[in-house]
Nucleic acid binder design. Structure first.
Lengths: 152, 152
DNA sequence: TGTTTCGAAACAACATAAGTTACATGATTT
DNA sequence: AAATCATGTAACTTATGTTGTTTCGAAACA
């Protein structure tokens, strides 16, 4: 399957919400992301459980952001969408008696854990406001632009 | 889908081959990994293309390692199995005009690229001999054992 | 000739995000 | 109260890629 884009999509939506007064309906958001409102509700449910957004039914209802963009990190959103497995490749999980396989798995586990730690550390260093501003990673290569308006 | 285990499996096989005189058949290897010989041939084909192993048909045939374990790094094998996408999560690829989505994608791309660089750097620092010896990562946490015999 | 072994094609199984349909629930407007 | 709007949820389908399996053919060897 292609890569999990829930994190990316939720970041996108939340920044829009942070720059928008009033609620956004699932339909509006779905059009923004070029997808289906049910997919939006499904994914946003995780954000609601964490208390980052609320949803209201009926006229004038929809989704509302409960925090400022400065208060939310990439790590928060990653966790809210279910902390999906970061890696598409990893050790085989046979747990056999073979010491060679054990050594291989130990090595891979260590290396991937280190990379994941770095990733989550970077996630925790970046707020949604930083992204909206065009800042990328504190110590990172920072290849993107600066100063960022909004629009669909 | 569950994680791609080709790298892990090939490391396992190659270390066995490094400690084994003569050829190993796909059937023997398949039993070692508890899978099917066709899967072995399919995956080992990448190693053969890189010149790390050869395969011979007929009686006494099978797979033979052409390099010493000291000469092969984790990175070599990762590339030989096709350099599969390391991450299961990533940016949405709509490439819209929306500057917010662009900023999100730029940030994620940067962060994931940094993590991947670290991963590949670690891969390049570890030889198959290191793994067999129980050494893990030069600068890493090194959580595994030391001194390593062989056996399936 | 017969057996071993790889090579390759073709297809099924499996897992998971994503897309879709359908209906129930609740809130607001008229 | 009725109509409308919007979320909540279940169920099913689609898409994608690794893995598993069957079935041939080709080559090497006894």
């Amino acid at each position: 399957m292609r890569q999990d884009s829930r994190l990316s999509r939720m970041l996108h939506v939340l920044i829009h919400m942070g720059h928008h007064d009033g609620a956004l309906t699932s339909d509006m958001i779905a059009k923004m992301l070029d997808t289906n409102p049910v997919v939006i509700r499904r994914t946003m449910a995780g954000l609601r459980e964490k208390g980052y957004v609320t949803s209201e039914k009926g006229h004038g209802g929809g989704w509302t952001l409960l925090h400022r963009l400065e208060e939310l990190t990439l790590l928060d959103i990653y966790r809210a969408v279910g902390e999906p497995s970061v890696f598409a490749v990893g050790p085989a999980y046979d747990m056999p008696g073979c010491v060679i396989e054990q050594a291989v798995n130990a090595t891979l586990t260590d290396v991937f854990a280190e990379a994941e730690q770095l990733l989550l550390k970077r996630f925790s260093d970046v707020t949604l406001a930083d992204i909206a501003r065009g800042f990328v990673v504190p110590g990172g290569p920072n290849a993107s632009g600066q100063g960022m308006a909004e629009e669909s």
